[in-house]
Design a protein around this nucleic acid. Structure first.
Lengths: 105, 105
DNA sequence: ATTTAGAGTTACCTTTTTGTTACCACTATT
DNA sequence: AATAGTGGTAACAAAAAGGTAACTCTAAAT
């Protein structure tokens, strides 16, 4: 872990990576169970999904709630900090849409 | 290369990575030579700087101008697309500043 | 003849990130 | 007794990203 003077680098540290944006985006629409996330994010392995969720949790962007039921139920919910990323995603989405020709194919 | 339905993922594909945000940020203040970039971005190796600049160029975010002089002179300038990332960086900077406690140390 | 300067390139290596496969725990149901 | 359902973990493999050191090219200066 390093210290970032640059708030942009800091932000990218937290939301970057191959899967975190999609995970956060899916959770923007509300609490989801582990299995529901896996279904809505095709091709992610359970291992990687678990890893990314744990990182997002320790970065304070979401909360993991485990219910003592059989079979087990685990729910993930964005914290206010997680939800506050909406504006950032929105700006990136605007840029991405305005520059579709730049997007790889 | 893959196709991204998600414009956020597409945007991160183009500006993500360890060095691209800083490179783009430095270029926001105007055209710079290779050596000037290297000085303003401490610890980046020449090889990686070259690689990242080539990628940004092929993504249409900047232009590389080479002058036939000895010793050689090469200048990098943001394209309008590159400059238009300003809003995205701005939003990330806001979030990063509002969430300093989340930033690693 | 050797050195210097700028902007690289090349070959090679290490670290980080992401993916694959198999397996576990616990209970209810068939 | 065997199987299904849920949310994982362990061990290993592959790919991507990043880093290091040495080398190139050319003209002018020492």
């Amino acid at each position: 872990m390093e210290f970032y003077d640059c708030p942009v680098t800091a932000t990218l540290e937290v939301i970057g990576g191959k899967w975190k944006p999609i995970i956060l985006y899916v959770l923007m629409s509300g609490t989801k169970r582990f299995g529901a996330l896996a279904v809505r994010i095709p091709n992610i392995s359970r291992k990687v999904l678990t890893e990314q969720l744990r990182e997002l949790e320790s970065d304070g962007l979401l909360i993991r709630r485990k219910y003592k039921e059989i079979p087990p139920r685990v729910e993930y919910t964005l914290t206010p900090e997680g939800k506050s990323l909406w504006d950032v995603f929105n700006e990136m989405a605007i840029w991405g849409n305005n520059n579709r020709r730049i997007v790889k194919k």
